[in-house]
Simulated scan of single mutants.
Amino acid sequence: MSLGTKVRQYREAKNWSQDDLALRLDVTQSTISNIESDKSIPNSLLLNRIAKELDVDINDLFNDSSNNIMSNNEFSDHAVAAVNQYNPVFNMHSPEIIESILKNQEQISKLIESQNKLIENLLKK
């Protein structure tokens, strides 16, 4: 049984609509709909809040009780792999990202310099 199916079952067991759960979690109804239809997977913070609102152990939201996603406050390897399939991994050492960061820093430096000149001119007046 999928995560979304389990969320729906626990929600319906409480006789809550998707809107009810969304309101309790401060998310949109479409977020709940996407989770329940397995179009998206919630991040770890939202997943934890869902479990708390539904009064279930976070592990109960996953297929097998033997495949616990968390133990000793650490996410299991299969839980990390499940989330990573929805989140691309970025190589923070790629030349494109480094170049972009450097360009942004250069622009920020120019803006600060420009602001300092404006402040100097205002103080002279």
Results as ranks from 00 to 15, higher is better:
90 F>N: 05
121 N>V: 01
55 D>R: 13
103 K>G: 01
80 V>I: 15
80 V>P: 05
19 D>G: 08
67 N>H: 01
124 K>N: 12
119 I>S: 05
66 S>K: 09
38 D>N: 15
53 E>W: 04
6 K>I: 03
75 F>Y: 15
120 E>N: 11
6 K>L: 15
37 S>Q: 12
14 K>A: 10
6 K>A: 05
76 S>N: 02
102 L>K: 15
42 P>D: 04
93 H>M: 11
3 L>G: 05
86 Y>Q: 13
113 E>R: 08
103 K>F: 01
2 S>A: 06
11 R>D: 02
1 M>G: 02
92 M>F: 14
14 K>P: 06
61 L>E: 02
18 Q>I: 03
10 Y>K: 10
27 V>T: 13
100 S>D: 10
13 A>L: 09
91 N>Q: 13
86 Y>E: 13
110 K>A: 11
92 M>W: 15
56 V>R: 02
66 S>H: 09
45 L>E: 15
68 N>C: 00
112 I>S: 12
105 Q>Y: 04
43 N>L: 05
115 Q>N: 13
78 H>F: 03
63 N>H: 05
5 T>H: 12
88 P>E: 07
98 I>C: 09
49 R>W: 00
4 G>D: 01
82 A>I: 07
31 T>P: 00
78 H>K: 12
34 N>G: 00
102 L>I: 11
117 K>V: 05
69 I>R: 00
110 K>T: 08
75 F>L: 15
31 T>S: 14
23 L>I: 06
46 L>H: 07
116 N>S: 11
70 M>T: 08
2 S>W: 09
82 A>G: 04
49 R>N: 11
6 K>T: 03
45 L>I: 08
109 S>L: 07
63 N>W: 06
80 V>N: 07
93 H>P: 02
65 S>L: 09
106 E>I: 08
87 N>T: 12
95 P>D: 04
